[in-house]
């Protein structure tokens, strides 16, 4: 684990840190919008991983000259991961949009977007049901 190993894998370290931050935000934050933000960071980390892996040392942008005279000596960066991640970004945006839409609807129904308050309301609903129908085991487990 020398210095060059650390520097040589710097993109991975960044990816790991960003991903863990995102995951932490998703788990730790009680605000539903912040959870979505965390989810975004988490996904972005993966985008970074893909994009950085396409990089080829000394490679140039993978654009062919217009006259199509391709010099076999030219090294191109691998464009495929970028293309893949373009799709993933679209998916990510859709997820974010849907998540936010759900948050809006939750706010309309519950009057709050704080997880603990929502849980409290649901707890009340559940205990009301239990009072009528008998105790259920499991609850939200």
């Amino acid at each position: 684990m020398d210095w060059s190993f650390f520097v040589g894998h710097v993109n991975y370290w960044l990816f790991v840190v960003l991903m863990m931050t995102g995951l932490y935000v998703v788990v730790a934050k009680g605000n539903l919008v912040k959870k979505i933000v965390g989810l975004n960071m988490f996904q972005t980390a993966v985008f970074m991983l893909y994009i950085s892996m396409g990089k080829v040392h000394g490679g140039t942008a993978p654009i062919f000259p217009t006259d199509m005279k391709i010099d076999p000596a030219t090294v191109y960066t691998n464009p495929l991961p970028h293309v893949l991640i373009l799709t993933a970004i679209v998916v990510g945006i859709a997820t974010t949009a849907l998540g936010l839409a759900l948050v809006v609807r939750i706010r309309e129904e519950y009057g709050t977007i704080e997880e603990d308050e929502i849980l409290e309301i649901e707890q009340d609903m559940a205990s009301e049901e239990n009072r009528i129908h008998g105790q259920a085991m499991g609850g939200r487990a």
Partner: peptide, 24 residues
């Protein structure tokens, strides 16, 4: 149903992202 869908969205997205990491 809204919170259930939201929970599922968060977990499902984490799951799918893990899957993509694996593919990467």
């Amino acid at each position: 149903a809204l919170t259930a869908a939201y929970d599922y969205l968060v977990m499902g997205t984490i799951g799918a992202t893990f899957f993509v990491i694996g593919l990467g």
